[in-house]
Computed example of a mutant assay.
Amino acid sequence: MNTRVQQNDSTRVQLPAATAAYWADRHVVITGGSSGIGLAVTELALGAGARVSVLALDDPAMTALAARTGEYDGRLATFTANVTSPDQIRAALNGARSQHGPIGAVIACAGIAKPGYFTELSESDFRNHMEVNYFGTLTPIREALPDMLTADRASITAISSSAPPPKPYAKNSSPRASPSPSSIPRTSTPPSWPPKPQPNPENSLPSPPAPP
């Protein structure tokens, strides 16, 4: 089996034979699988011979991926869905089962990030992060779980990523001065690392009570 897959950056990745064998012919559901890390995971799964169902937003990246379904002998299916909508997730997974059979793995890649200072983010921002990143991971797993509980082997993977914010990172791109280390008051001596072991009194367990 050819386990090599072309990546977007023209590099080649080859999975170990045992890894490719595990994923071969397995029905894998990948949320957010049309772009970024999700797309790389989609391509790796296809390269390993998996049957892949991608759930993602209806956007240009998803349109481009849907146009490639003919490249994989029917092993790639795409379903537009917003992971914040349980109804859309449920409908997409039913369609995935119709095309690829019972689900053997879920890889949750869908996620968002809105960097900002805590005091500047709105309540809506925090709730949106939870809806997409938490419930958007939880819901597909819960909906696919009945299939996986009856499978011989199954797996659940949740992926997250982070990147450093652009510099300077401040409102309106205006830099904020950071205090120098010497200007930060110290209230106590910082602990050493690694911590030194503390002596144990009498170096023993508590003695049993004396007999009456």
Rank of each mutant, 00 (worst) to 15 (best):
D58T: 03
D87E: 15
T69N: 02
A61D: 10
A64V: 06
A56D: 11
G70D: 09
S85H: 05
A64C: 04
A67V: 00
T69W: 01
A45D: 15
T80F: 00
T42M: 07
A91R: 06
P86M: 08
P86D: 15
L44F: 06
L76K: 03
R51K: 15
Y72L: 00
L55S: 11
S85P: 15
T80L: 01
V83F: 10
V52T: 08
R68P: 04
T78S: 07
A91Y: 04
V41E: 14
D59M: 08
M62Y: 03
V52L: 08
A66Y: 08
V52N: 06
A81Y: 08
R51V: 08
V83C: 12
P60R: 14
L57T: 07
L44Y: 05
D73N: 13
A81C: 11
D87S: 12
V54S: 14
S53T: 09
E43T: 09
T80N: 15
S85R: 13
F79E: 08
E43D: 13
E71N: 07
L46F: 07
E71H: 05
T42L: 10
A48E: 13
G74V: 03
G47H: 13
L65N: 06
T63R: 11
D58N: 14
L76V: 08
V83L: 13
G49M: 07
L93R: 03
G74D: 05
G47I: 07
D59N: 15
L65Y: 03
R51M: 05
T69S: 10
V83M: 14
M62C: 06
S85C: 10
T84Y: 02
A50D: 07
S85E: 10
A50G: 03
D87P: 00
S53M: 09
S53L: 09
I89Y: 00
L44C: 12
P86S: 14
R90G: 05
L46M: 06
R90P: 00
S85N: 10
L44T: 05
P60T: 11
Y72N: 00
R51L: 09
D87H: 08
A61V: 04
P60H: 13
A56Q: 04
L57H: 11
G47N: 09
V83G: 11
L57D: 01
L55A: 06
L76W: 12
V54A: 14
A45K: 04
R68M: 05
A66I: 01
A45G: 12
R75Q: 04
A67W: 04
P60G: 12
A67E: 09
P86N: 12
E43K: 12
L46S: 03
A91S: 14
T84R: 15
V83E: 13
T69L: 02
